[in-house]
Design a protein around this nucleic acid. Structure first.
Lengths: 151, 151
DNA sequence: CACGCAGTCTGGAACGAGTCAAGAAAACTG
DNA sequence: CAGTTTTCTTGACTCGTTCCAGACTGCGTG
């Protein structure tokens, strides 16, 4: 997606159009499920120098505006993705933390009715599948036993 | 559950029976979904003094042995529970972090088949429902608008 | 098209949860 | 019980993330 389109996206959410924002959003399109460090590196490669703080701020602004979704798999730093319109879930590799999309097994969001437990008001059902990515499956066939729950 | 029973549990998993372990496990039975701090406090009230580190170590040992399950809701410290035999899920309050059990919507574990996405080997489907607990619903009716995604 | 200010960015300090390391102190083994 | 192995204590430290104060800037207004 061209930077122009990203600009339109930002404007449409009444967010100021700044270089860091354009860069973050644009880089994120090409690298779904990146963590802050990866994003920072990409943004810096493009703009020269951007503070880590700015990246955090931008990501928060984008997330608040609904342009970006934050994923926080237990035991791994947060990831971000731009695929935000639909209701999909994620597979996370126990060993290397790789993340991939999984289309919703059931239907529309929240895709599972929690049977209104204990008076809670539920507005989102988050599903995370845990397992091993292809690459790590290979590795564990060779060296050593399957990792246990890890840490 | 009496400490004797807890002792048996530990032995059965070939874990050494130490005061901190008995205390942690036993307190956890009465307080499901406690975080480390709560557990430490309870254990100290019972034993006098136990280092935080010991609590972490004990919890890890128990988790590795499968006597305890660790829950890590994004943005909240880890919680622990002793209900491990069945396959159930959790509701988490966006505002106060309260956790409650939800019986599995579908069937046995993993209760949702990830349609074997991108070659991942899936061994667990984790479901977290996000919402507001009864108490926080009240509070938000009064003071101020519903919290957005929080943070 | 200069002005002004809310909204952004920089750099650095600070924080909470959790981990690592080394030695002292217990729990099983025979 | 003496020996061996595991666990607990203490304290320093990492990592991801947030907070703060001040400098800077995109952009609606006059």
């Amino acid at each position: 997606m061209a930077d122009d389109d990203v600009t339109v996206l930002l404007r449409r959410s009444s967010l100021r159009v700044t270089a860091p924002r354009v860069a973050v959003l644009s880089e994120l399109q090409g690298r779904p499920h990146s963590d802050v460090e990866t994003i920072s590196a990409a943004v810096r490669a493009r703009l020269g120098s951007v503070s880590t703080q700015a990246v955090y701020d931008v990501l928060r602004a984008l997330a608040d505006a609904g342009l970006v979704r934050r994923i926080e798999p237990a035991g791994h730093p947060a990831r971000y993705e731009t695929r935000v319109a639909d209701n999909h879930h994620h597979v996370v590799c126990r060993r290397c933390g790789a993340v991939d999309d999984v289309d919703c097994a059931i239907g529309s969001a929240p895709c599972l009715d929690a049977s209104s437990p204990q008076g809670f008001t539920v507005d989102e059902a988050e599903v995370i599948y845990w397992g091993l990515c292809p690459r790590c499956q290979e590795r564990s066939d060779q060296d050593g036993p399957t990792p246990t729950k890890e840490r």
